Amino acid sequence: MAEDAVTLTREVEPADIMSVMRMIPHRYPFLMIDRVVDIQLDRSAVGIKNVSINEPHFQGHFPRQPVMPGVLIIESMAQTAAVLVVETLEGAAAGKLVYFMTVEGARFRKPVVPGDQLRVHVTKVKNRGPVWKFSGEAKVEDTLVAEATFTAMIMDD
């Protein structure tokens, strides 16, 4: 298997919101993670999304019973994975655009509502060049609320 080799000798600190915004290009209203609390280089990361009623999608999804859209939960997985990639590549991918190639096996098990804290766990399955594949799970407290496998490509400028 011809996967890219990465040197994994440095310690990685959790990423607060300012660090996240230096690493990925997303901004309000599409920044779907507030911080990354655990990063294991070239392997996994855990992101946090504090779900608030003030988010614009709740105006229409759904006004009388607000539910975080499943596609935004998957986006939070992708953004957590992007932080992992930037850290793994020591910043070489910082700010670059990343495009979904596939989303597979997406399952939504329980609604995510305002007041929930989403813990987004992503694990690298493999990578080859600019293409990275991850499995992701989103949990509220210890309850699995969503899962998916996704592939994305980092685009050069």
Rank of each mutant, 00 (worst) to 15 (best):
V125W: 01
M77S: 12
V125G: 02
V36E: 06
F62M: 07
V113N: 00
V67C: 05
V37W: 00
H121G: 02
Q65T: 01
I39M: 05
P111S: 07
P66R: 01
L84H: 07
A138D: 05
H57F: 15
V98N: 04
A146G: 15
M101A: 11
R107V: 09
R119Q: 12
N50I: 10
A106I: 09
I33L: 11
P56L: 06
I48F: 01
I74S: 01
G129E: 00
T143K: 13
V112T: 12
M68S: 04
T123V: 09
S76F: 12
F108I: 04
P130H: 02
H57G: 00
H61A: 05
R43S: 14
M77I: 10
F62S: 05
F100N: 02
L41R: 15
R35H: 04
N50E: 11
A45Q: 09
P66K: 03
F134I: 06
V83H: 08
P56D: 09
P111R: 04
V71F: 01
N50T: 11
N50P: 03
K133E: 13
T80W: 10
G60R: 14
V103G: 08
A92F: 01
P130K: 08
F58P: 03
V51Q: 03
E104P: 08
V112N: 10
T102M: 06
G129H: 00
I39R: 10
F100P: 01
L72E: 08
M32N: 08
Q79F: 10
R109W: 04
E90K: 14
P63A: 12
V113L: 05
R109K: 15
R128T: 13
S52W: 02
T123I: 01
E137G: 01
G91C: 07
M77H: 11
V36Q: 05
A78H: 14
V98W: 03
V67F: 01
L97R: 11
A92N: 13
F134V: 05
D34L: 04
H121K: 13
V85T: 15
M68A: 05
A82M: 12
G70P: 04
I33A: 08
V113I: 15
A93P: 04
G136W: 07
N127P: 01
L72G: 08
